[in-house]
Design a protein around this nucleic acid. Structure first.
Lengths: 294, 294
DNA sequence: GCAATTCTGTAATAAAAAATACAAACGTTA
DNA sequence: TAACGTTTGTATTTTTTATTACAGAATTGC
């Protein structure tokens, strides 16, 4: 079917969406371009062809199918897109202040150092074991966090929900939490984010869950959280920075390593689910050409 | 694939410094290039000449004087520079390909490196300006994020809400978002977290807010977010890691630096509000033994 | 398993763009 | 102001690059 020629949509997206309209070699060209977008398109046809492992005419046919009369027009479009993005505050700053200029802010230094040290001291066994546990889809996962760390629980749940079933984020008010305790048993795994000051409600939730047979895992700022006593796996992170606040950057980093680990642990399933979700999104996404003016 | 080529300093700088070595018309060429760097150099010689108001040979002499054997070499250099900025310099090539590497997980290495590099390249002016803006309590702040980055918006809002009034997290469904647009005007500041793939709804929200006079700020993965065009401040972070997911750790780190900055910017007010909140908590929740770091 | 169709690369051709030669214009100095 | 050196554009040549024609390969349908 013929889509309306919306010239404003990024070429990147259009190529992505129309990937299956192309022939096998044209798709190789598309992938080469997407992999190094948009620079790959700004050289010569021959360079492009070489990088994609196809012949020059295939490149020409590819851009032709995208709707460009010639390669030059295609390049013009790419340059146009780049130019539009380049005249932004970001472009100004990143181009101008290109000096290395190590950060002199002690907060920044400490924060970066925290992330690095966290992994340096992270017990490998705990990490591997926890990944394996979280990858087991027969278990139901429940993420929970405190006042600030709730955002991390949410973040982790949003990702894991994509690569595996049975992922729950224990959100909302405390009363709500207790409701969710009802169904929890040996087949459940609780992932707790808990840094000082350790909130009583979370501690109680974790203890209750453990009592009902659930496996409790903990991502925390030290081994000091009371939950550590009942947790099967504990991952400690550095959180102290010269500020009234603790830093959650290292916690976030741990969460991401866990997410990546679970994804990798069962790559095919993850791949399938991601693809299925992608299809669903495309199917549901109405052609958004209507502009919303308010 | 990164060649052993030494990363010389940006051509932009060199041209700027050597501006008076050039002849009058060559300088016109230089200015045309600087005015639209580097896109102006990526077209044909004739286009370049036309834009600069000089003849083609002058362009050739200009690039010749810069030390390039031919125009093609000059373009190659420009493309190289762009590519280095578009992709993370280290991520795509070195981390992905060299499998064995250190004893450490390459994902972890890249993640830590991302956080470090993010701050190395973070434009100081943008950061300082943004902190000042966010510290202005006459403004109302609205945090918004995408599928995954919503957690960051939430996290940031949770913190800022403590140290200053008028902080809002634009949460929930899209329909909801539009409702919140109603009251937005020049006294509002939108903080957008947006990494690829950039979600249309968020873009529309930011655009609409900007149209109504609000100040838009952006924390993103590169200069490619369309919101960059309308944003007053843009803070870019490294997000690429060897995983199907992008890493938000650096985004989180930026958020924390902003939070700390705002807290510091108005230390007394922050102190007062934190104390007041503490008192409230103790009054309402006697179980909590009020240890609090400040 | 064969025919028809589609796809793809090789090689030739056409188009363009870069590079060059040269003369006019300009500026500088005697 | 005249003569010299430098700078600059026009016109031409040379080279590169895009494009096209066509035949062999691969795929699809019957």
């Amino acid at each position: 079917m013929q889509k309306g020629q919306i010239m404003e949509r990024p070429l990147l997206e259009e190529i992505h969406d129309r990937l299956d309209e192309f022939t096998a070699t044209e798709r190789k060209a598309a992938h080469a371009l997407l992999a190094n977008y948009p620079m790959q398109g700004l050289g010569t046809v021959a360079q492009f062809a070489d990088a994609a492992g196809v012949s020059s005419p295939t490149i020409l046919r590819f851009v032709g199918r995208l709707g460009f009369p010639g390669f030059a027009d295609f390049q013009k479009r790419l340059r146009q897109e780049l130019e539009n993005q380049l005249n932004t505050p970001l472009a100004r700053s990143s181009a101008m202040e290109s000096g290395p200029a190590q950060s002199d802010d002690p907060l920044v230094e400490q924060l970066v150092e925290n992330v690095r040290e966290t992994f340096e001291h992270l017990p490998k066994g705990e990490l591997a074991g926890m990944i394996k546990l979280l990858a087991d889809e027969k278990k139901t996962l429940h993420m929970i966090g405190g006042r600030f760390t709730d955002a991390l629980a949410r973040y982790m749940a949003a990702h894991l929900r994509i690569v595996r079933p049975n992922v729950n984020h224990v959100a909302g008010q405390q009363g709500n939490w207790l409701d969710q305790l009802i169904g929890i048993g040996p087949k459940d795994v609780i992932v707790v984010f808990d840094i000082r000051r350790y909130q009583n409600e979370i501690i109680r939730f974790a203890e209750a869950a453990a009592k009902q047979g659930a496996t409790v895992t903990l991502i925390t700022d030290s081994w000091m959280s009371p939950i550590g006593k009942i947790a099967s796996f504990v991952l400690p992170a550095r959180v102290a920075v010269p500020s009234p606040w603790d830093s959650s950057a290292a916690l976030m980093a741990i969460a991401e390593v866990l997410i990546a680990g679970v994804t990798r642990e069962n790559a095919e399933r993850s791949q399938q689910r991601m693809q299925a979700l992608e299809d669903l999104r495309n199917a549901h996404d109405p052609e958004n050409d209507g502009e919303h003016r308010l």
